[in-house]
Nucleic acid binder design. Structure first.
Lengths: 113, 113
DNA sequence: GCACGACAAGTAGCGTTGCTACGCATGAAG
DNA sequence: CTTCATGCGTAGCAACGCTACTTGTCGTGC
């Protein structure tokens, strides 16, 4: 993939990653990369501002800690964040079903590959 | 759906609609609405500029005609447009698979609904 | 001691994209 | 004559993600 162009679904992705447990920014990038099989390799300039956006919106909460002299900001999903994630999931389903209807290959009727 | 937020996939949608045959702008809007079950109701200010973008990129070609005194610009997929559409399809598959891995419900392992 | 790379966070500025809100014109219907 | 559906189009805006850059610590190699 082009690795970019998450186009509005970044927030959902971030929430989904944090759903499995609190992580700090750098670790989130690595989690995204690992869980996507290397497809999603997002630069810090993409996720840090997104994380702050989510925090301002009250969907995640952050706590600072120092590990080996290095400052870490660990992000955690809030209740509102969990609800938002559920909404994003529904939205994604809608979106992918709709676009998939035009671009095909979203709901193969019989056997996939 | 929110009706907006096609987020980068508008071009692919447009190409997909034109794949089934040439249409003029207004008809494209209606085709999008019909084929999406009313979900996609795009304003002219969204599709006309997009169409011109695609034309400038050589993915569609337009021809003017007059129907009942009304000017119509009919758009048609070019060869390059067809190839681009194939690429967009592949890209969409990748994208939806990747995001789906996080947001779930994209490739149900067994029986869907 | 010093440089360099991995870890960790962050900002500034930019370009693309789609949306809102308009404007213009014609033909049919009332 | 006014209104509505058809039909095309532009201007300006806001959001989003990306590139590029900065700051700082720790560990390793020279």
């Amino acid at each position: 993939m082009k690795a970019q162009a998450l186009h509005g679904h970044l927030d959902a992705l971030l929430l989904a990653v944090l759903e499995r447990g609190a992580l700090h920014g750098y670790a989130i990038i690595e989690a995204l990369r690992a869980r996507s099989g290397g497809t999603l390799d997002l630069p810090t300039g993409t996720i840090y501002p997104a994380l702050r956006r989510l925090e301002r919106a009250g969907l995640v909460a952050s706590t600072w800690s120092t590990v080996n002299g290095r400052e870490r900001r660990t992000y955690e999903l809030t209740d509102a964040g969990g609800r938002a994630l559920a909404g994003e999931r529904a939205g994604w389903r809608d979106f992918s079903a709709t676009v998939g209807r035009f671009l095909g290959a979203d709901e193969p009727p019989a056997a996939p590959a």
